[in-house]
């Protein structure tokens, strides 16, 4: 097997002495694999992602991205991140925000920003400022800005979490399409089991207090996984299984 693109070895994280947020995390993500992280809020999903992005240091253990430290992987301009709330420069248009990623990474082999936004259904809004866009559109710009430089590693923290249910459903399908085309190694935090099962190759369930990996469930469903059209019995069964595991974990930690 090839070396994992992201590897956490016996990682623990605490912000206060004695209170482990995460403990004993062993996780390896293969190149091109998409792993979804689910778990109760506050179990440390964001913290885990931030460690993979080099924005937090683990208290114990090690985090490797592309065989290097996360900071070195960032310095190679091989990391893209998108968080729950779109982080755009408010005084720059949608197009300028996406171009900014290329300007900062100095990548010349990136995608064409205006073409990318057109593919994302924002052809009419290239020159709109973030405040003129709906939440769903802002998030599409945010994700475009995260992958325009074609990073090998994509870290998504509840990228659809701030959206209403209907926007969210159509955006999940859209995101599945985008990721199927570009195929970066992806860590995706979500609190929606359906979203995880539609998108992921593996679903990792975290427990809480402290956060550990409770289950690691491979998803073998064929793609594309059209669910809102006509979910297959297989798909529904997988969602049920994952949800069953998640609820057992939540009950065990008293929620």
């Amino acid at each position: 097997m090839t070396d994992p693109a992201v590897r956490l070895k016996q990682v623990s994280k605490r912000f206060k002495a004695g209170v482990d947020i995460l403990t004993g995390i062993d996780l390896a993500v293969a190149p091109g694999e998409l792993v979804a992280l689910v778990g109760a809020s506050g179990c440390g999903k964001t913290t885990l992602l931030r460690m993979a992005a080099g924005l937090e240091e683990p208290s114990e253990g090690s985090v490797e991205v592309l065989g290097r430290s996360p900071a070195q992987a960032c310095a190679l301009r091989q990391v893209g991140v998108a968080f729950q709330r779109a982080a755009l420069v408010p005084s720059r248009t949608a197009l300028e925000n996406v171009q900014l990623t290329l300007a900062i990474t100095r990548r010349t082999d990136g995608l064409d920003p205006s073409q990318l936004l057109r593919d994302f259904g924002l052809g009419e809004h290239l020159h709109a400022y973030p405040h003129q866009l709906s939440g769903g559109m802002q998030q599409r710009v945010n994700i475009a800005a995260a992958l325009v430089h074609q990073p090998q590693i994509l870290l998504l923290d509840e990228p659809l979490g701030a959206l209403d249910e209907i926007t969210r459903e159509s955006m999940t399908e859209w995101l599945a399409g985008v990721l199927a085309r570009t195929r970066p190694t992806t860590l995706l935090v979500t609190h929606s089991v359906e979203e995880a099962v539609v998108l992921a190759d593996r679903v990792v369930i975290l427990s809480r207090y402290p956060g550990r990996i409770a289950h690691d469930i491979p998803i073998h469903l064929p793609r594309p996984r059209d669910i809102w059209g006509k979910p297959s019995a297989e798909f529904q069964e997988t969602v049920r299984t994952v949800r069953g595991h998640l609820h057992a974990v939540l009950r065990a930690t008293g929620i």
Partner: peptide
């Protein structure tokens, strides 16, 4: 200043 945006810039090695 948007902390999340600053973090995003840092991951781009800004």
């Amino acid at each position: 200043a948007d902390r999340v945006l600053i973090d995003r810039m840092r991951t781009l090695d800004g």
